[in-house]
Design a protein around this nucleic acid. Sequence first.
DNA 1: CTGGACTGTCAACAGTCGTTGGCCTACAGT
DNA 2: ACTGTAGGCCAACGACTGTTGACAGTCCAG
Lengths: 193, 193
Amino acid sequence: MTGTTENQQAVRRSDATRAAILSAARERFASDGYERATIRAIARDAKIDPSMVMRYYDSKAGLFAAAVAIDPGLPDLPVEPREAIGRTLVSHFLTLWEENGELTALMRVAATDPAAAERMQSVLREQLIPLARQVGPEPEQAQARAALCASTVLGLALTRYVLRFPASMALGREEIVDWLGPTIQRYLTAPTP
Amino acid sequence: MTGTTENQQAVRRSDATRAAILSAARERFASDGYERATIRAIARDAKIDPSMVMRYYDSKAGLFAAAVAIDPGLPDLPVEPREAIGRTLVSHFLTLWEENGELTALMRVAATDPAAAERMQSVLREQLIPLARQVGPEPEQAQARAALCASTVLGLALTRYVLRFPASMALGREEIVDWLGPTIQRYLTAPTP
DNA sequence: CTGGACTGTCAACAGTCGTTGGCCTACAGT
DNA sequence: ACTGTAGGCCAACGACTGTTGACAGTCCAG
């Protein structure tokens, strides 16, 4: 056991270093992608030796996994009133992306790494499809409806946070909710066209 | 001059090799992204020596530029009837993406390479914004409307061709046009919400 | 005070990458 | 037939990568 207490969760002296590594890794992965974000560069940012990264996170893949571990927390969304679910979802996703830079990193990497793509898909499978089944008509169409919602939301994230199109970054938060809200609402609740 | 004819466009003996390199490069870039698609692997696929790639395309960057040179050809789209522009655009984009695998390669690379991202943005700037200015009300909002359309279409391409979400790949062509068509139509022609 | 575990540094390994230059072969123009 | 040039292969360079092991200082428990 380490630390000054006998608590089950020990406070290690290296926690600050671990956090510095993780923070630097998130920035580098988000801006450079997986391959171009080198362990040496991350270590330089965190002002430690590259070998420390290996000691604390085993490998580059392990570091990435730790850096993008995040929970979108969709299940806690208020489903009522049902006619506002579209705007609620869009608004929730906007804050999620703006608060967590690791989502940009995850998406940049997912573009070329199947494992990261699978991780993004799990959000759709475990959170968006159940939600579509819950609020939409014809539960057997929940897959299609959820896929459309994912494409809408991820499309905005792509042009705004990953590709950084000026025209997309210029959109105001309210503007986005006003335009995308009804779209999501229709995908989730409208009858099949 | 080379070749058996005196035409202004000489037929070089190496044209077959050039084409083989370009084809192999498109496949590798599309499936692996820029960094993981090595010149050695591309050369192996094309059954030639890696140094030939350098001879014909100068560098890896030059090869990539040649591999993703493509014209979306939006300007020739029929604008009439105006109430069908949404479905027309979606349908056009679908065939475009399904016929040209290099678009997937371009998007995969654009996720981490600013130059490729700029190239994607140029489509929006030079083709989508003018179209929005042409068919939509309030021309000063053409930027925002075009950005929303780009996010819609690229979002579908992302989930369907890049991330390959099963739920998105399961959507039929008609289904996509039926759902996304009205969305694009609204983004382009509806009054500001 | 002392031993051992923890935090950190340094140098090096083995592999891969893009890229280069030399060399051989085969074809085309004269 | 002869020769210059283009097509192609081979071996190697230098740089950079993830990863490893040996070594030094630091802290805490006994």
